[in-house]
């Protein structure tokens, strides 16, 4: 019989979904601000390939002439975005979840296997783990980007009080461009993330909401499932209990 596997701890699920709202709010209010001075292009030499953004984009989304409103929202959401992000990093560090998320030296190779596999260029299956190396790079990278947004944002929000930071980022105008580029990065991350979530199917998605997923493999038929919900905590409790017994036994053994 398949059993339930605990996949995403509750705090991570809440912070993930809260971040969806906060980051969307930051990007939307950021666009209201950017509209007032929309100078960035993608260029090859002098040829403008894409202008951020064409008029239809602003009119379509109703972003025109709302700078004051955008600033007020941006400087409201920033607190939530920063606190939620710090809480997430803090939680992953304390809980040990970071071990699933942070890539190691071996991850480069594995991430390449994942990329080839997902592009149907190779039949080599990526290892079945909570997060494969490509995911580890993506999820750790996007957290670093979040940190980058906070720093570049602070550098353009308070460029005198934090002049050292603004200077370190190359000055006010560079910091503004970096802040914008990171936002483009989130959009690219989002597109990739959504694509992969759709490819992975419903149960993977639902696990981000309820935390559990059915195990893929079928355990031995005779296994008695002690608890319908075998969480990591249970394993830990058992382990601690076993360790305690061993210690007890050791104490009872008379010294020679």
């Amino acid at each position: 019989m398949r059993h339930l596997e605990h996949k995403h701890p509750r705090p991570i699920r809440w912070m993930h979904w809260l971040n969806v709202v906060l980051l969307s709010g930051m990007i939307w209010s950021g666009l209201l601000i950017y509209w007032a001075n929309d100078v960035y292009n993608v260029r090859v030499g002098r040829r403008v390939l894409f202008h951020f953004f064409p008029d239809w984009f602003y009119t379509g989304l109703g972003l025109n002439a709302r700078l004051a409103e955008g600033m007020a929202w941006h400087f409201f959401f920033m607190w939530g975005f920063a606190l939620n992000g710090l809480a997430y990093v803090g939680y992953t560090l304390i809980s040990g979840e970071w071990r699933h998320l942070v890539p190691t030296r071996k991850s480069f190779r594995e991430a390449w296997v994942v990329v080839l596999h997902d592009l149907h260029l190779s039949k080599v299956e990526p290892p079945k783990r909570k997060f494969n190396a490509a995911q580890q790079f993506a999820y750790t990278g996007v957290i670093l980007m979040g940190g980058g947004s906070l720093l570049t944002g602070l550098a353009i929000y308070k460029p005198v009080q934090f002049a050292w930071l603004t200077n370190a980022l190359g000055g006010y105008e560079w910091a503004r461009l970096e802040h914008f580029a990171l936002t483009v990065g989130y959009v690219l991350f989002f597109l990739m993330h959504i694509t992969q979530v759709i490819r992975s199917g419903w149960s993977n998605f639902a696990a981000m909401v309820c935390g559990y997923e059915l195990s893929a493999e079928v355990p031995q038929p005779m296994t008695v499932v002690r608890s319908p919900v075998v969480s990591q905590e249970t394993h830990l409790e058992q382990k601690v209990a076993e360790d305690a017994k061993v210690e007890e036994a050791a104490e009872l053994t008379p010294a020679k």
Binding site: L4, G211, L214, S227, V229
Partner: peptide, 17 residues
């Protein structure tokens, strides 16, 4: 999530639903 053992075996699929 609760880790209390249940007495009767439950279909995990139903439980997940």
């Amino acid at each position: 999530m609760s880790t209390t053992p249940v007495t009767s075996p439950v279909d995990p699929e139903q439980q997940l639903r």
